[in-house]
């Protein structure tokens, strides 16, 4: 590479007078506007993790679920719960947030024991029946749970990772979806909206 000595260059442009065409300025300002627009949007972008799409199931009939309960072996079907609000809770024994949310679910069930208008149904996500039922016993839950061994129930409900919870109306319509651990306030608020 050569260091250049430009002082003697004939093309030294200092003295040249060039008219800048209007087209050029127009093009430059269009590009500028587009870039500034993009940067403006980026500046107000939320962090990637906070965004999730609303479930396409909301407002639609909840896909049916049937199977044997891991808690007492009885045959359970979502259709048999018609007439009650159903809290459909996807959980697993290996999932720490599921453990964290269980007091909220238990308290919620306890609060509605008199009106008897709310049922909780657990769906085991990627776990064995024995571990899941031990988990339920250890947190003090008494509701039915179905083991979704093949993951087909999770796919029907568009579940990614436990815990995820759905609120289903007495007529069998999906009313709300909670991603991550539920809170008592959240459950009360959601059910209050539809009662």
């Amino acid at each position: 590479m050569v260091t250049t000595d430009n002082d003697t260059t004939e093309n030294n442009g200092q003295d040249r007078q060039i008219r800048i065409s209007k087209q050029r300025i127009l093009l430059a300002s269009t590009i500028l506007l587009v870039i500034l627009g993009i940067i403006g949007v980026l500046a107000y972008s939320p962090a990637a993790t906070t965004i999730s799409t609303p479930s396409p199931l909301l407002g639609k009939v909840a896909p049916n679920i049937a199977g044997n309960s891991i808690t007492n072996g009885s045959y359970v079907s979502l259709q048999n719960y018609r007439g009650k609000f159903v809290i459909l809770n996807f959980f697993a024994s290996w999932c720490t947030p599921c453990f964290d949310e269980s007091p909220a679910l238990i308290t919620f069930a306890y609060n509605h024991r008199k009106t008897n208008n709310v049922a909780i149904l657990g769906i085991v996500f990627s776990d064995t029946s024995s571990r899941a039922s031990n988990f339920l016993k250890s947190v003090g839950a008494t509701w039915n749970a179905i083991n979704d061994q093949s993951g087909s129930i999770a796919i029907k409900y568009g579940v990614s990772e436990p815990p995820e919870t759905f609120l289903i109306s007495p007529s069998g319509i999906v009313l709300a979806k909670f991603i991550g651990p539920v809170t008592l306030a959240g459950l009360n608020e959601a059910i209050g909206r539809y009662q």
Partner: peptide
């Protein structure tokens, strides 16, 4: 893969990805 950071189901071994593969 719905449980991953921008990976496809093919490239993921997450539980739900395994289920979706089976389906």
């Amino acid at each position: 893969c719905p449980a991953c950071e921008g990976q496809s189901v093919e490239n993921s071994t997450a539980a739900i990805a395994v289920s979706i593969k089976a389906k």
